[in-house]
Design a protein around this nucleic acid. Sequence first.
DNA 1: CGAAGATGTATTGTATACAAAACGGGGAAG
DNA 2: CTTCCCCGTTTTGTATACAATACATCTTCG
Lengths: 222, 222
Amino acid sequence: MAKASDRAYETIRAMILSGELESGDQLGEEALAERCGVSRTPIREALRRLESELLVRRTDSQRSFVADWSLDDVADAFELRAMLEGYAARRAAERMTPEALERLRSINARVRVAVRATKPDVDGFLDGNRDFHALILDTASSRRLSGLLGALIEQPVVWRTAQHYGREAFQRSHSEHEDLLAAFARRDGDWAESVMRGHIRRAFHAYSDAHRGLASLDLGAA
Amino acid sequence: MAKASDRAYETIRAMILSGELESGDQLGEEALAERCGVSRTPIREALRRLESELLVRRTDSQRSFVADWSLDDVADAFELRAMLEGYAARRAAERMTPEALERLRSINARVRVAVRATKPDVDGFLDGNRDFHALILDTASSRRLSGLLGALIEQPVVWRTAQHYGREAFQRSHSEHEDLLAAFARRDGDWAESVMRGHIRRAFHAYSDAHRGLASLDLGAA
DNA sequence: CGAAGATGTATTGTATACAAAACGGGGAAG
DNA sequence: CTTCCCCGTTTTGTATACAATACATCTTCG
């Protein structure tokens, strides 16, 4: 059975990603311990871990809160992702095997179906997208790189707004994955890095547009 | 007074950086607790922190060891540093203030003295170098970037071999800092990023050369 | 002689109790 | 009315005890 601290970590993380805990909410150890059914000891460990992943912020006086992200923060995170995942794509291209390439193709075929449906299958897209990027990172085989990127991918604020992407954003993303596959097939690191950087940067613009749209909706509702 | 867990963190970190604890040494919580004069609780916290900074490695069965770095690992870390510090230099150039620029110049003047002495002042060089890079990172003002780079800078294996750099390596490093100052003065982000990348990559080559030298010395002694 | 299994020992995981520090509210002084 | 301080409450930090797990050694069997 998994350790209690691991379960606590997963539980709290899920509560943050799902939005059950909102940005700025205080994370009292006692309260979390009760919710997770464990003592404070494993909770403390889970909080330190989430803090190192930037999902949790601690004040000077050691109190923990759900991290809040300004648009600048998000832009910053995406730019870092663009560089690091660009590097990952380069390494992956240099280390690409026929098996990994085949798996990437099959993942992307799944995404194609999700994207081309009359009503785009958002969850299907997100799952395929995650698998695609994860396999690239895995093929890059740098534990250090994986560690750094782990802190940046799957930020709640990011993928929750993907729900509001337009159809063309999904389709563009899919076709950029096809470009990556071509670069991988030729084992062309320069090309793969360049495509991946553009891919991530355009993803930020899609996020940014969707976010602006949401913000004006909020204003309209207020 | 600082927290016991902070003191434990500093103590263990110093023991690793100084070489008192060597690569591969096991870090038993009980033993460390005794050495630091605290209980296991703050030690556990310190170990998690050091682990997230990659100074400590944990096995599948949760035992902690001083991390060991293969040459590939070091190359990997330097390449990541090259990209991230390149980005830091770009942001710093865009955000440069007259005050920060002046401080960078004065730091580099100190380094010049250390480097040009008849017998190069290695500690003086390392201190100045660290301050120089730290101030750039600070000027870049991205907490996320600082967090990621924190895990990569000041790795023991790196700066301990700086002791064996040749005089020309020190001087080249110093003159590259001058180039960076010029880029900062013009607020030229592209230039600063490019110079910084080359700077870090050449630092790796200097490390790599010194390391090869040491390896043959070891072989000669055996 | 080698390999698989059992057992004692070392090490980590968790719960709990208490100590220390930070926050918040209410009251007194200006 | 505002500001500062005091004190009760809340929250975090540390020590300790015990439970669970992993490791190493020795034994036993093939």
